[in-house]
Write a protein that binds this DNA or RNA. Structure first.
Lengths: 195, 195
DNA sequence: GGCTTAAGTCAACGCATGTTGACTTTTGCG
DNA sequence: CGCAAAAGTCAACATGCGTTGACTTAAGCC
């Protein structure tokens, strides 16, 4: 790669990084191309040249992977805890991946972002859960998603007081048994009778 | 009330109703005063005259009450189910109250809406839960909120496939035991050791 | 009936946005 | 060096927004 190509690559990366920061902070509609360019130390026109449009920039800023661990070699009793721990690390890791924050902030008003989240669910969460919960995996994965996303919403977006201040290990201790039940509860009896 | 006052009251109500519909559908930033006025069959200027600004219109469109039932006369074992059932009715009732949908859609990017949700939590959810779970009520209420909001997010906003298609009674059967555990689980042992 | 006040309408302003095209600067290569 | 292509910059456009003020219409009251 020639030096001049390297420079453009660097600029593109700076723009993408700035875009992720702005989308994560302000959501899709409040984030502006001008603010992204300013944060990246460049020009709005360059942002458009490299990413085509605001939509294209958003798509590029949210291409990522949940990196779910394979659950089939985890002790059955530890699957719930493994899942919460993984998602907490995703949100709070150093550096934290901003993509989930971006996606969650945007998905509420942006149809394509919502589709993307459903895609993550169908292509990454559901398959991982299918291998450890072969009966009604979609239902179980959906319940897991509702608790995980609800936790993320309250802790990282809405900042509901008791949840935002908890230590990660305490969050794990509270949430893990819920996921464990969603994954392992028998279908007859106390779970869901019909359907 | 004179007929002319009655007319203005009707118009104000039509505007408010249209605003709720638009905010619920599009979120705060995508909803426009012009669209609200058009849906209400009136003029944008009138919207501003009656509600001062877009912020004022939003504030008026989200003044509401969770109408939580008093839990102190519910059998202990039924509190979880009572709560889910109540929130499901709030979202799906006929007519469904659009306020929660509006608030959830907006809170993700609108600071004041997020504050409003925290206010609902502190002033309505927390007190109701305090009377049935006197030890660490804030923690328990926070966990309940995370599951309820996560369910609402997945079922009504993101429309994650397995959750959006479930019958209300099945949702209740799945979620109620989770809330029950959050409210009634002993603090030592499997819940959260320290903190 | 005519005057006062409120209800409703219209056109316009100022502003911020995404996006475009022409321009200038820098780089790589013969 | 000198040219071609790429990287980067600038000013401007068109559009849609919230909001404003002047205007017109209708209603209530003496």
């Amino acid at each position: 790669m020639s030096p001049t190509q390297a420079r453009s690559t660097t600029t593109r990366a700076r723009i993408l990084s700035a875009a992720q920061a702005q989308f994560a902070k302000d959501g899709y509609e409040r984030a502006t191309i001008r603010a992204v360019a300013s944060l990246a130390g460049t020009d709005p026109a360059l942002v458009i040249r490299y990413y085509g449009s605001k939509e294209g920039l958003f798509a590029a800023a949210t291409h990522f992977d949940l990196c779910l661990p394979s659950l089939d070699h985890v002790a059955h009793a530890d699957i719930g805890e493994t899942l919460v721990r993984h998602f907490l690390a995703l949100w709070e890791g150093n550096p934290a991946d901003p993509s989930l924050r971006i996606l969650l902030r945007a998905a509420v008003t942006h149809a394509e972002a919502a589709t993307r989240i459903r895609g993550l669910f169908a292509e990454q969460v559901l398959p991982a859960i299918r291998v450890v919960a072969p009966d009604r995996p979609a239902l179980r994965a959906g319940l897991v998603a509702s608790q995980i996303l609800g936790l993320a919403l309250c802790r990282y977006i809405l900042e509901v007081p008791p949840l935002v201040d908890m230590k990660p290990d305490d969050v794990i201790a509270c949430i893990a048994p819920t996921l464990q039940r969603y994954l392992a509860a028998p279908l007859d009896g106390g779970f869901t009778a019909n359907a």
